[in-house]
Amino acid sequence: MDAPVTLITGTRIGIGRHLAEHYLRLGHRVVGCSRAPVDWTREGYNHYGTDVADEKGVKAMFSAIRRSYGRLDHLINNAGIASMNHSLLTPVSTVSAILATNAVGTFLLSREAAKLMKRKGYGRIVNFSSVAVPLKLAGEAAYVASKSAVVALTHVLAREFAEFGITVNCVGPGPLATNLIRSVPKQTIDRLLSLQAIPRMGTFDDVANTVDFFLRPESGFITGQTIYLGGV
């Protein structure tokens, strides 16, 4: 069987779930994970209850992928959490949790994926940052720090993995109607949108289109790049 194997983190809901369905429609064999169980299933989809910040769990998931498929073509580091709060009101436990999922999780999954991709000398890794980074969003210090770390990892891992035929790129969406931003006040969202060249909410398809571009075999000379959506 030659269908590509695509691992997407954070597929229970939101962008991750949409991407899982998108790549299933394109004929990929899709593996997904989240901390809580999923309430949906699809032919060709395999789910793991894995926390991306838990090294043991992540390693076990990769062992299972190696046993079941013997390969990995694509990794999409979508799992992420956020917290909207002034830094003076932010407990350090919140900062640690955000850094663990967003930054450490991206590192861990990329490291384990590269080991598996290296066998074939081919791979595509796509990370998730946010327009909150270039916009230096006040009220999201921990989130912006974690998503800046993701951009930094994208730069460095692109160099380290280049010799294995693996590209590492990053997409930075603007506001998109998911659970992640449901508690952000409307006026904050409106202010954010007004800072974009194209002042509208992003859609799942805007994100999928960008990820498609990075995953294409023809994109082998594109690595270490971050594309922010909406013209930020």
Partner: peptide, 28 residues
């Protein structure tokens, strides 16, 4: 809110001699 919470943290330390953090993830 930020100003008041920080002022209250400092006032509590002065009054009770204990440094507490009133930061909360559910603030917003």
């Amino acid at each position: 809110l930020v100003t008041l919470v920080v002022a209250v943290e400092q006032a509590i330390e002065e009054k009770f001699g204990t440094n507490v953090s009133l930061a909360d993830p559910g603030a917003m």
